[in-house]
Computed example of a mutant assay.
Amino acid sequence: MRRAFLAVGALAVVAGGAAWWLTSPDPVSAAALQGITGDAERGAALFTQAGCASCHLAPEAEEDGPPMLAGGMAFETQFGTFYAPNISPGQEGVGGWSEADLVNAMAAGISPSGAHYYPALPYTSYQNADPQDLADIAAHLMTLPVADTPSRPHDLSFPFNIRRSLGFWKLLYADRGWVMEAPDTPELERGRYLVEALFHCGQCHTTRTALGGMEFDAWLQGAQNPNGDGRIPGIAPGQLDWSDADIAAYLRTGLTPDYDSVGGHMAAVVRNLATLPDEDIAAIVAYLGAIPAAPE
């Protein structure tokens, strides 16, 4: 009996060690960041395109002038409510973080202390972004006003409040690579970068598994709103009967072909899209026309 207890204890120790190892954070490699220095001026446009302020502005903040990234916006899901944190360059935000710390947060979902971030931060999209672009965003972020509002803790149900378990989630859903594996033209490659990485369109427009991972087989084919209120529309071929010119006009102005106007969170996305040059809008339209169509 004593030997049996010892054997069970040894197995428990081995299993615990394996689980701890499997859930360990996997930061961006030092080699990927070698020689990269952020350019704050270039990062200003990328910051807008990545939609950072769209989530991290305080809910009642004014949108004019440099953004005050105090956080606080609530995102209701079946797992509980996530609150966007303060990411301003002060003590309550990311003050004192290095560019490498910020790149690791955006691309790997890892804090400077080595804790996992929840994928409400769309690092499963940003992980495909160019590390130089992320470093430029980080450099610009450090030029913005400081907010002294403490970040609000997430309100999550058990077991989703166990942050270490995100290591298992990342094994399932992170580092999946590109959805469009081999773009045929430079235009499609640019469109893929904007849609899949920088603008992270799939985070809202793609259905998710019971554990919250994106289902690549239903890429951009629409999804249930995480708060349970309605459905986010699909934007894959066969789901829009708009011309390429209609889609480009919507992305640029927020107006549909029948002169309806964009609303909700998409209004902020359109404001960000409107900063792109025409060739980038055309690349997004080309990409949306080249992905697999939704089933009838």
Rank of each mutant, 00 (worst) to 15 (best):
N86G: 03
V94Y: 02
G90L: 06
Q91M: 13
E63H: 14
P89V: 13
F82N: 08
E76Q: 12
Q78Y: 00
A58C: 03
I87A: 01
Y83S: 04
Y83F: 15
A61K: 08
G93T: 03
G80E: 07
P85D: 02
I87R: 01
Q91P: 05
G96T: 08
P66D: 07
A74V: 07
Q91Y: 08
P66V: 06
E92F: 01
W97E: 05
P66E: 07
A61E: 14
G90H: 09
E76F: 00
E60M: 10
F82C: 10
G65Q: 06
G71S: 01
G80A: 10
Y83C: 01
G71T: 03
A58K: 12
M73W: 00
P85R: 10
I87M: 03
A58Q: 14
D64H: 06
I87D: 00
T77F: 07
P66K: 12
H56R: 03
V94S: 01
Q78K: 13
Y83D: 03
E63C: 00
G65V: 06
P89W: 10
G71Y: 00
Q91I: 04
E60Q: 15
P59L: 06
M73F: 02
F82H: 14
A84M: 14
P85C: 05
F75D: 06
P89L: 10
H56V: 05
Q91E: 15
E62T: 14
G96L: 11
E60T: 15
Y83I: 02
E92R: 12
H56W: 05
E60W: 04
T77R: 00
P59V: 05
Y83A: 02
G71L: 02
L69M: 07
T77C: 09
G93P: 00
M68I: 14
A58H: 14
Q78P: 11
Q78H: 08
S88V: 09
Q91K: 14
P89S: 10
P85N: 07
M73N: 13
Q91H: 10
A70S: 14
E92C: 00
G95Q: 11
E92A: 15
A70D: 04
Q78F: 05
Q91V: 12
E63Y: 04
F82K: 11
H56C: 03
I87H: 01
A61Q: 11
G95K: 09
E92Y: 02
P85L: 02
G93E: 03
A70Y: 04
S88D: 00
D64A: 14
G96S: 11
Y83H: 15
E62G: 14
G95V: 12
P89G: 11
A70G: 15
E60F: 07
G95C: 12
G65D: 07
G95T: 11
E76R: 13
E62V: 13
H56Q: 02
A70Q: 09
Y83L: 06
P59G: 08
E60C: 00
Q91D: 15
N86M: 04
S88F: 05
P89M: 10
E76Y: 01
E92D: 09
F82R: 09
G96A: 13
P66T: 09
N86E: 03
W97K: 05
E92K: 13
A70N: 05
E92P: 00
A58M: 10
G93H: 03
M68V: 15
F79W: 13
G93N: 02
F75C: 00
D64Y: 00
L69G: 03
F79M: 11
G71E: 00
T81C: 08
P67N: 04
E76L: 01
Q78A: 12
G65M: 04
G95F: 12
G95S: 12
